[in-house]
């Protein structure tokens, strides 16, 4: 009496063992693809890259944050400067802004009054002020929502690069 039941049980298990993974794979394959666009319409997308030439790229300029800084210039060897900042995806701070601070001042807890706003950390390019080409300076990462200095870079020298 038990033998036919065991045989049926075995057949059911074999059938489920094949059908369930197939049904699961079919379900995954049948998911609607995420709607993605290649390019955003004009105006919505970030402005055209004005700073096309890379001068240098460094990851060691901030003391505590794993941020890569790329120094860019309008054209190779000439023109105004800009920086691009990039970090790992898990580097998230609320309303993170980037400032230029000329000279080599000691920055503690508060944002100095002479700090010049460059823009949002997520901006594709942050043009540097003209003063940056004449004197050394620092980049400061400042979280506006936390009202807190996140990090200060080592001194950056552009004077030698200016023509």
């Amino acid at each position: 009496m038990i033998h036919p039941l065991r045989q049926r049980h075995r057949h059911i298990i074999i059938a489920l063992g094949i059908l369930l993974p197939v049904a699961f794979a079919a379900g995954i394959a049948a998911r609607k693809p995420l709607p993605e666009v290649n390019t955003l319409p004009d105006g919505i997308s970030p402005p055209i890259n004005l700073f096309a030439a890379e001068v240098w790229s460094r990851e060691d300029l901030f003391y505590m944050s794993p941020v890569r800084i790329r120094l860019l210039r309008e054209q190779s060897g000439t023109g105004k400067f800009a920086v691009t900042l990039a970090a790992a995806k898990d580097f998230v701070k609320p309303e993170l802004l980037v400032y230029w601070l000329y000279g080599n001042p000691s920055v503690t807890n508060a944002l100095p009054h002479n700090a010049i706003l460059l823009g949002s950390f997520t901006a594709p390019q942050l043009p540097l002020p003209a003063v940056a080409e004449k004197t050394n300076g620092l980049l400061v990462l400042y979280s506006l929502a936390d009202n807190q200095i996140v990090d200060v870079s080592k001194p950056i020298h552009l004077a030698g690069l200016s023509k």
């Binding site: 802004l97 706003l117 460059l118 002020p129």
Partner: peptide
């Protein structure tokens, strides 16, 4: 929220 140090270009 006003951004300190804004120069009007951003």
């Amino acid at each position: 929220v006003p951004r300190p140090g804004a120069t009007g270009t951003q």
